[in-house]
Amino acid sequence: MKRSGIASIKARKGKDRLVYWFVCLFSFLAMIPLFVILYNVISKGYKNFNLNLFTKGTPSSMDALMAKMNGEPIPGGILNGITGSLLIVGMAILFSVPIGLSVGVYLSENRKHKFARIISFLADLLQGMPSIVIGIIAYAWVVKPLGGYSALAGSIALTIMMLPMIIRSTEETLKMLPQSYKEAGLALGSSYTNVVFKILIPSGFGGIFTGILLAISRVLGETAPLMLTALGASVVNWNIMEPSSAIPLLIWDFYNDPNLVEMVWSSSLLLLIVIFLLNGIAKIVARKWKV
């Protein structure tokens, strides 16, 4: 009896080690695509990653062909895409943050309320909604009634995509705060609004802000909904009622133009850098603002 007990402990230890190595192996395998992407984007993108990229608009296909034949670098950049992304995503932030924050506060404060549960369920559904569907909805609701493609329509599509992430992160962060912060605030004679804005939201700032940054980094790369709403433009546009370009839209255009296809990589590199930066900041904020 005793001996078999010892044997089984050895067997269990062996199994333990086996599982451990399997987990390590698969973790490594899962990371390979990331390294491949990084290697490709950096090695192919750095050539055109220069000042032109930030200061010039999209070159015409013809100019690019001529430059190529003369062995010169492509004479243009993605300034129209950068400004377009700033405009569209910037507006999406303006729309989605106040709405998302309010809904998140509502959900965390009325956990047992039936209406809150329905909203919470709908937010989950929205999170799983394919972005192309959101693009079509924005097309039907905004582009059609306004009579044309516009940066505004694009930002509304992105707002819809950002909302569930902001709602969730706000709700989850506020739920984690001890109930006693709220009670302590109220016990000092504070109004409920002041408790929410001066205690709860500042205390949960790290988590909420991280959620907003991650939502931004998610929609920065969205292409499909923008095709149906912002359409794209070859010049810099700051008018919200006009069609506008965006970095992912340009990447798609470059991909379809054999003379500009090299620009795919430098544009992707820029997009990746921005998204990594946002994620990095989110990590730092989440750690620094832990309460």
């Binding site: 006693s180 016990a187 000092l188 205390s203």
Partner: peptide
């Protein structure tokens, strides 16, 4: 709100506002 200003409360867990 008026009542609560007249009656201070101290809780079981110390809970200074973290921010």
């Amino acid at each position: 709100m008026e009542v609560r200003r007249m009656a201070g409360m101290v809780f079981q867990q110390p809970n200074p506002f973290p921010t």
